[in-house]
Design a protein around this nucleic acid. Structure first.
Length: 566
RNA sequence: GGGCGUGUAGCCUAGCCAGGACAAGGCGGCAGCCUCCUAAGCUGUAGAUCAAGGGUUCGAAUCCCUUCACGCCCGCCA
């Protein structure tokens, strides 16, 4: 929809530039695919500041350039552009009625929410160590990752969401070692594992010589000892089952789990050693294999193999990425800020191996008011606890608002409101902003939150429900400013998804969702639907349905339940 | 010490990558709106030397340099 208008404006402006003989200077915008400097604007449907860029080249006043371009524009009969104007140096473009009307028809028909991208994409997210439950820091990874998966699918891509399971790290060996000393209690599996892990760490801190037991387990596992492997598998599976339960509560699932161990057992990690040794940049130091990345700007050498012969996280990750590169067109990793350096080294090593590099989405840390979180120290707020609290708060809210409804309804609404609130709170903030977890903000369901958007959707559903079938409608009757603003915002769904997918910025879609809901609420307040006169009534019902469909598609893409009543 | 990121009204945040039309929202404050499709809503109002300083430019929250503050990293951990 809006992307068609965008393309029409582009060709209109480009033709005008050709006619005038204006040639653009080289700019960074060229590389980023928006060399005409178009943007949505409060002053027009699309605006361009291209005349400012042309001014120094042509040695003319930008306002004069805009005027000349305007005069050189020839509107195509079939275009979606109604008119252009030169507002001083700015060029403003407006969509025509036909565009607006077809946007309503398409959105009302509900078949227009999928884009045209076709790549095969592997998105790796969450990948938390199976040594305890997900805490409120991990959900940033899970929610950003899952929202990206949904956005890319919405854009048309074939996406596989993967969880990279760390079954070989020291933390997991500590879990297995701990399980040999302490029984697992009957709490939720991931929480039970955490208790053993925390106690085992205490023991190790108190008696450092116990560490040899952990080392021994790691060596046995890496060498393929079957009895040890069974212990690891059982502990990891158990922790993962609890993590999966939590993810399910967040409306998140992975298409596949890849275990680090696979890449050792199938020999691909060994091949990584060979490939990197053949670059001549490796050296043995104290029995350990190291890679010199100083040419790539990394001071410290990257250790590939311990002196006891076991592999390290990075090495296995190289093998995993080699596999991903062979099985996708695009690979995306969602990682915490602590992985910045290591992921740079990973990319550098992949470059040396001639393997395509992943796109990495980094998010900054979530801390508690009392400081940073730590699974090892048992200092964290678990995602389960957060969801329980938010759900309890949502239950109080829905009970206060809808006291006449049965408990089953109130429970169900509270669950979906809580899920939405938690996801939206995470996704609305840019990933490169460090945040401090705040109970008060987490339990606040007002305007800048998911319930606001869910509520708009429920309002639309309520109108449609009361109206029943409304038959034929004439979109030409939708001429009020609130109606037109709503139609335009609906039409921009494709733009929001494309930007979010291209730039891997899920918070752009969160912003779009809020704006869409806001504009719908304004329409709702200003424009009676059910009591409108015949003709207007049907047209507005169609617009409500279009908005409902768009809100539902937006919410679904954010992984937030689109409640029909709340 | 070095690297990366962040710093926008009392609080939380968008805008920064591709410099341009009055710096945009939410929370909190103040003032209004439910005999009317769900008030988890709508309207209005007050509140900002865009961390500080310098530079580039016709024009800087946005680009460059310096300083300060905060976060993360600099392990034969992950």
């Amino acid at each position: 929809m809006f992307l068609d208008f965008w393309r029409d404006v582009e060709s209109l402006l480009r033709d005008a530039m050709d006619r005038c003989g204006f040639v653009l200077p080289e700019t960074d915008a060229r590389i980023n695919g928006n060399e005409l400097l178009l943007e949505t604007s409060p002053h027009a449907d699309l605006a361009s500041t291209i005349s400012f860029r042309l001014a120094p080249v042509l040695k003319k006043n930008p306002a004069k350039i805009s005027q000349e371009l305007l005069e050189a524009m020839v509107l195509d009969e079939n275009s979606t552009v109604d008119r252009a104007e030169a507002m001083g140096p700015y060029l403003n473009f407006y969509a025509n009625r036909r565009f607006l009307e077809s946007a309503v028809l398409e959105a009302e028909g509900d078949g227009c929410w999928t884009g045209s991208m076709t790549e095969r994409v592997i998105v790796e997210h969450t990948s938390a160590n199976p040594n305890g439950p997900l805490h409120v820091g991990h959900i940033r990874n899970s929610v950003i990752g899952d929202t990206l998966v949904r956005i890319l699918r919405r854009a048309g891509c074939q996406v596989e969401a993967q969880y990279y399971v760390n079954d070989m790290g020291r933390q997991i060996a500590i879990v297995v070692w701990g399980c040999g000393r302490y029984p697992l209690d009957d709490s939720k599996p991931d929480h039970a594992i955490a208790k053993v892990y925390i106690q085992a760490n205490k023991d190790l801190a108190a008696e450092p010589e116990l560490k040899v037991g952990v080392d021994r387990l790691m060596q046995l596992y890496e060498s393929g000892d079957s009895e040890t492997a069974a212990k690891f598998k059982s502990a990891v599976d158990y922790a993962l089952s609890g993590i999966e339960d939590t993810l399910r509560r967040l409306n998140i699932s992975h298409d596949s789990y890849r275990w680090e161990g696979e890449f050792v057992r199938d020999g691909s990690t060994a091949k990584v050693f060979e490939a990197l040794e053949s670059t001549g940049l490796t050296e043995w130091e104290g029995g350990a294999l190291q890679l010199d990345l100083s040419d790539q700007g990394f001071e410290k050498k990257l250790v590939l193999k311990r002196s006891d012969g076991t592999s390290l996280y990075t090495t296995r990750d190289l093998a995993y990425h080699q596999w991903k590169a062979e099985n996708s067109d695009r690979m995306i990793d969602v990682l915490g800020a602590d992985h910045k350096l290591i992921s740079g080294q990973l990319k550098a090593a992949l470059r040396l191996m001639g393997v395509r590099e992943p796109e990495i989405v980094i998010f900054e840390f979530v801390s508690l008011p009392t400081g940073s979180m730590s699974t090892r120290k048992g200092k964290f707020i678990s995602t389960d606890e957060l969801l329980d609290e938010v759900e309890a708060q949502a239950y109080r809210e829905v009970t206060a608002r809808r006291p006449e409804e049965v408990e089953e309804f109130r429970r169900a609404v509270a669950k979906d409101v809580a899920l939405g609130a938690v996801r939206y709170d995470v996704v609305k903030v840019s990933p490169d902003k460090a945040t401090t977890f705040d109970w008060k903000a987490a339990l606040d369901f007002e305007k800048l939150s998911a319930p606001f958007i869910q509520y708009s959707h429920a309002r639309a559903c309520s109108i449609l429900d009361k109206a029943g079938d409304f038959g034929e409608f004439d979109p030409r009757l939708l001429t009020g400013s609130e109606e037109i603003d709503l139609i335009k915002k609906i039409s921009q769904f494709d733009l929001a998804v494309e930007l979010a997918a291209r730039e891997l910025k899920p918070h752009l879609l969160a912003t779009y969702a809020r704006e869409l809901a806001e504009i719908f609420n304004q329409f709702y307040r200003s424009s009676p639907v059910l009591d409108a006169e015949p003709g207007i009534r049907e047209a507005r019902l169609a617009l409500v349905k279009a908005a409902r469909n768009c809100l539902r598609a937006t919410l679904e893409t954010l992984g937030i339940p689109a409640l029909e009543s709340m």
